[in-house]
Design a protein around this nucleic acid. Sequence first.
DNA 1: CTTAGTGCAAAGCTTTTGCAATCCC
DNA 2: GGGATTGCAAAAGCTTTGCACTAAG
Lengths: 146, 146
Amino acid sequence: MMTGAEVTTLLRSKGFKATPQRLAVYEALSHTTAHPNADMLYRELVPHYPTMSLATVYKTLDILCEVGLAQELNVGEESFRYDATVESHPHVRCVSCGRVDDVPVLNDTALLSQAEIATGYDITGRQIYFYGVCPACAAKRKKQLH
Amino acid sequence: MMTGAEVTTLLRSKGFKATPQRLAVYEALSHTTAHPNADMLYRELVPHYPTMSLATVYKTLDILCEVGLAQELNVGEESFRYDATVESHPHVRCVSCGRVDDVPVLNDTALLSQAEIATGYDITGRQIYFYGVCPACAAKRKKQLH
DNA sequence: CTTAGTGCAAAGCTTTTGCAATCCC
DNA sequence: GGGATTGCAAAAGCTTTGCACTAAG
């Protein structure tokens, strides 16, 4: 996670202006573990930035991804989610309540090199998604059986 | 891959009717390695089934996934892609031309159990996506450097 | 002061839905 | 024959775009 000053410097070094809206989007994204989509971020920001628009959130997220401050996730929903932790790490989605959690980094370098050999691709990135039932939903289901 | 007769039997056993449209969608999906999305399938089918509609392709793909004849992929595009090979296996997408290929099955059971322990989730499925440059695009790029 | 960025509304995509006509069983 | 399915058109989400206004540097 970077400070506002660091984000400002990074944006400018890449030729982007450091606007309050951009800093706010990064701030919100870097302080949540919910892996929000654009709309979730927008709804969280509007109360504090009444003029914030959804279009600006989308444009900002594109830029954050471009400068390496965020990554885009595709967990099998209609919308993209975002993560301010840019190091490659797996994610897990609860098929019952929809929450998305980080999975602590696993060593997948063996998979990656196996995949390169098997396909001939020059592989530069990967995403691993797990699907299952989160502890909270598992507990709820257990309760309902009684 | 299943024969038309087998697909017919399976659909009926799950309470679905075996219509020509459904058999055609499965037929097309099971004979390609392109991992098509709904629109690609539709465009391939229309010449042979002039009354085929995109809505029917979407509805059929839902049913094929539900009865275990197909799986949905999320390779980071706007649309979903589909694969008639339902065994869990990784996919790789070329960031240059957009093609999506299968990666021969890798042993990822270790990852899965590590993820269960780390997250507390009861994990029932996973998807692994690699991103890189396919051999054809790599060759093209090399050529352009001369 | 100059150019990039914001925010609104409209458009563009993919996917879903409502419904009359049709077809499977 | 009866109920599921088709296919059309319209609607519903998510995301992008055009453009006048504003603000960053």
